[in-house]
């Protein structure tokens, strides 16, 4: 179980829905509560959509880490985009360079237990999301 992983390619909008399904399956596998599941899957939806819209596509990989009651799901989303120029600004509520609400990135960060983001013009953006079962 611990070395199992699922990868979803993110190219078109329907891939975001598929990523949500896989995220839900992974959270169900670790016996996560309804609220934890909903928060994590919502965060995945926001990050995966960003990868498709702003990141020229990419992929998200889910894996289960930890043992027993302390298991959690880690999602790592990488894209092929231009990177984020001003990270502080990008993580602010209401800031957007597109037509959205500017709540996706900042909101996703609040929904998970761990949120890491690395971005550069050369290697695109990688967002790591982690959520425990409870």
């Amino acid at each position: 179980m611990t070395d199992e992983s699922w990868t979803v390619a993110l190219v078109r909008q329907s891939d975001v829905a598929f990523a949500r399904q896989v995220a839900m399956k992974a959270m169900t596998a670790i016996g996560a509560s309804a609220i934890k599941k909903t928060k994590f899957v919502t965060a995945v939806s926001e990050i995966a959509r960003n990868a498709v819209i702003y990141g020229h596509g990419g992929a998200i990989t889910f894996r289960v880490v930890g043992i027993g009651l302390h298991r959690s799901v880690v999602g790592e989303c990488t894209d092929r985009g231009p990177g984020i120029a001003d990270m502080q600004l990008a993580l602010k509520d209401g800031y957007t360079t597109g037509s959205g609400l500017g709540l996706g990135l900042s909101g996703a960060r609040r929904l998970v237990d761990r949120f890491d983001i690395i971005s550069s013009a050369e290697s695109g953006t990688t967002v790591t999301l982690e959520s425990a079962a409870r």
Binding site: A34, T38, K39, D93, L103, G107, R110
Partner: peptide
């Protein structure tokens, strides 16, 4: 659903 309501509020929506 309650979990959806909680999540929307945390998202700022």
């Amino acid at each position: 659903r309650p979990a959806v309501a909680m999540t929307l509020v945390e998202l700022g929506m």
